[in-house]
Design a protein around this nucleic acid. Structure first.
Lengths: 280, 280
DNA sequence: CATTGTGAACCGATTCACAGCG
DNA sequence: CGCTGTGAATCGGTTCACAATG
């Protein structure tokens, strides 16, 4: 598995830094807004503010694309919109397939943000036969038996996985085998793909967990200092130097507000995870 | 994000790098899987593979939490699950409100991944009176008039915004005013929040755009290099030296990087016709 | 031994600050 | 002038590689 797998150095996108690429869509959105309001030019300062970044970063980012601005003036909105669109490959049409038409898949199918940027939903695919033919967002759902056929016939190179975690890898494998080289994964699982295939993941619960981490620090500041549970078998430090607690780097002074061992979430349920895709 | 100026790294407290925090949920998920299969211990190598990272990174990450492993053996699964959960603040319950119950909001409400990790959907809120009372995922939707009341009464500190872009900032302001300090934003817009409030965003179309960028490079490489439009009036760069090419800062030595698309996309074509920038 | 934990090298990304230019 | 474009400094994160240690 991931063992010998050479790390995905697919990042050889020579030239434009990955971090910059990730921000281009942000600039594009801000620019589109200006364009709609017929603003002819913007300074890096203004555009940066609209995109939520700082101007130095924006200028540096643009410098990777070329010199598209005018000193003393700023950037021509229309021109930049075009250049960024082209750089991102949005001047062409990208047919995509969404696999797993559960709640999330359906929401994605209905999401206007896709279509508006050159992404065309070529097909909706689901493993549930009962879904077949049923239209979602005006597009009839097709059965996964036809996955390969659909991908090939439509020249789809981008696939969106919105299936339950358990089915994701399998779907991924089939998509890749069918020729897809870019995947947007919403299933909470790590996908293993061959070299040359790009995977980006969006994990809703991970985002919340990250927020929770910061939230915990803000409020209270002190984590529920429940005495660390016994290291089951290993690390069975009988009378070992009780070093449990967080040792490491500068430990913070444990304040201890109220406490409440709090209800320890037992995370051993049926491991629900992603929105189910309606069973058959 | 919201950190703006004052970067948190006061270094005083437990200095866990942001990048590490972002991976903890990943480790936790992998560990939960092992736990369910009753695996007692794991080596950094195995766990790293399951989480999709490399072992050095994982060990370094864990080193920020403390010394929870046993040399020559590995990590105790249950113990680690607990430690990470605690670090992330998942040992406590986090009530969240979801604002904007459209397709996406409904999908989120139905998303099992939230509930399974200590995130309790305290309420669903929508501005449409017609939605009020209607149950979604078993939870009755409430009208946004009651937003403040709901947040306060339930002690909600995390809010999820799934409204249209146009309403997002307003909703955000109200959530913040009501006391929320962490926001997960799904609306494709930049949110401005006061210091102390964390915002994480998930933008579906941005992810696709990033994939498109890479896809464009992979396939062909001979992208439809539509001749760049005339810089209307600005950025008129006269004849450029032979190979314009990207400015390419220092960047000379190309790392290993097997075969890079030799053909570099030329970025500046002579003037030409105005591009019909894509619609919105 | 095997495997952790970590200093130190490395590398990419951000920020600074100012030269360059319209 | 004002604002871009960019070297240089800095910062954060990753990787290396090995000493420490159960």
């Amino acid at each position: 598995m991931a063992t010998g797998r050479t790390h995905r150095p697919a990042t050889r996108s020579r030239g434009i830094p990955e971090a910059t690429v990730a921000r281009l869509p942000l600039y594009l959105r801000a620019l589109t807004g200006l364009s709609e309001r017929s603003v002819p030019t913007v300074s890096s300062e203004e555009l940066a503010a609209a995109a939520g970044v700082n101007s130095a970063k924006l200028r540096k980012d643009f410098s990777y694309l070329g010199s598209y601005g005018t000193r003393g003036v700023g950037y021509d909105v229309e021109y930049l919109v075009y250049q960024i669109s082209r750089e991102l490959g949005l001047t062409q049409d990208w047919p995509v397939v969404i696999v797993g038409i559960g709640n999330l898949g359906a929401a994605l199918a209905n999401y206007g943000g896709f279509a508006s940027r050159g992404f065309r939903v070529a097909a909706l695919i689901d493993a549930d036969p009962a879904m077949a033919g049923r239209p979602v967002a005006g597009i009839p759902v097709r059965h996964s038996d036809q996955l390969e056929e659909i991908v090939r016939d439509n020249g789809v190179s981008i696939g969106v996985i919105a299936t339950p975690a358990g089915a994701a890898q399998q779907v991924c494998d089939r998509l890749v085998a069918a020729g897809i080289t870019s995947i947007l994964n919403f299933a909470p699982t790590v996908l293993t793909v061959p070299d040359g295939v790009d995977v980006r993941k969006v994990d809703l619960s991970i985002e919340l967990q990250i927020l929770a981490f910061h939230e915990q620090r803000k409020a209270g500041e002190d984590v529920p200092d429940v005495p660390p549970p016994p290291p089951t078998t290993v690390a069975q430090d009988g009378a070992a130097p009780a070093d449990d607690e967080a040792p490491a780097p500068a430990q913070a002074p444990a304040a201890d507000d109220g406490q409440a061992p709090a209800a320890r979430r037992d995370r051993k349920g049926p491991d629900d995870e992603l929105p189910a895709v309606m069973p058959a």
